[in-house]
């Protein structure tokens, strides 16, 4: 531990980082962004939760948002698909773009926008219906009823979510009969059934036991390349295991965005370093 700290302390010197504003590693600027967050501010009533956050989420990669409780990482994630709109009295500033299309523009259809993203929540939230119906929920609400199409989507999504072999015999059973880990993988299958441009995950393993967590992490790892994933996590080891890029947030500010190995070995900012080495958090 001590050695690593020294190493980091040494590594910090050559990076001529400004003390103000976030540190953005040049590798990220070279990537093709799916989601661009541009100087984003967010208020819950009078309380500002996000300050001037700018972040690019690279295509086909897994990006992790880490930071201590209350740093605004979940707020940021939930702002991407505008789920926060359901809360009364919120206010935003700045902009977000999904593949170049404005998210917070004046004439944006929120429902259309959400159809382009998938989201996985902290607690597994399968709907009170069959496994089959859960997976095709987003197709059903679009009025899709061709059995062939639906069957194909169910199999593809469940296979991608590594759940197919466990449930293929009982697709008509209630989703609520599954175990917690299976339910969360079902929610992932549901999120990827509509082929989302970005997959948002809000601490997807926090309600699961270690074995189920390992399975989900494996699954997230296998989704890279095919899907763009933005994951919020409390667990630094998890971020280290599953992500390509890691963004560190603190008190509503984005502090640093770096490739994951850089973040955990040679963070550019003192606050990031203290957090990843466990000195606070």
């Amino acid at each position: 531990m001590l050695n690593a700290n020294e190493l980091i302390a040494d590594a910090k010197a050559p990076v001529a980082a400004p003390t103000e504003g976030p540190f953005v590693h040049p590798d990220i600027l070279a990537e093709d962004p799916v989601l661009e967050i541009d100087r984003f501010d967010f208020w819950y009533g009078e309380k500002q939760a996000l300050f001037d956050v700018s972040l690019n989420v690279p295509r086909g990669k897994v990006s992790a948002l880490i930071g201590p409780s209350g740093c605004g990482k979940s707020t940021l994630l939930r702002s991407v698909n505008r789920i926060n709109d359901l809360i009364d009295g919120i206010r935003i500033g700045g902009a977000m773009r999904l593949n170049g299309d404005s998210i917070y523009g004046k004439h944006v259809d929120v429902i259309e926008l959400r159809k382009r993203m998938g989201m996985v929540f902290q607690k597994p939230n399968p709907f009170p219906m069959s496994i089959y119906e859960n997976v095709i929920y987003s197709l059903r609400i679009d009025g899709e009823s061709r059995r062939g199409v639906l069957d194909e989507v169910v199999e593809r999504s469940l296979r991608s979510a590594a759940l197919w072999d466990e449930v293929k015999e009982r697709l008509d059973a209630s989703a609520l009969e599954l175990s917690g880990g299976q339910q969360q993988r079902l929610c992932i299958a549901r999120a990827i059934a509509a082929d989302p441009e970005v997959l948002l995950m809000d601490e997807p393993c926090s309600a699961l036991d270690p074995i189920a967590t390992a399975k989900i992490e494996e699954l997230i790892f296998s989704l890279r390349g095919e899907y763009t994933v933005l994951i919020v996590t409390h667990n630094m080891q998890q971020a280290a295991r599953v992500s390509d890029y890691t963004a560190f947030m603190y008190l509503g500010n984005l502090i640093e965005v770096s490739p994951t190995n850089v973040m955990f070995l040679k963070p550019a900012r003192r606050q990031s370093e203290e957090y990843v080495t466990g000195r606070f958090g």
Partner: peptide
């Protein structure tokens, strides 16, 4: 009806009525 269930439905791109009709009312 848990908030998470409504959010799950909205996140799938369901409208308010679709969420009420397919998720909230059955529950």
């Amino acid at each position: 009806v848990p908030r998470s269930m409504r959010e799950g439905s909205y996140a799938c791109g369901a409208s308010r009525w679709q969420t009420i009709w397919r998720i909230v009312l059955p529950k």
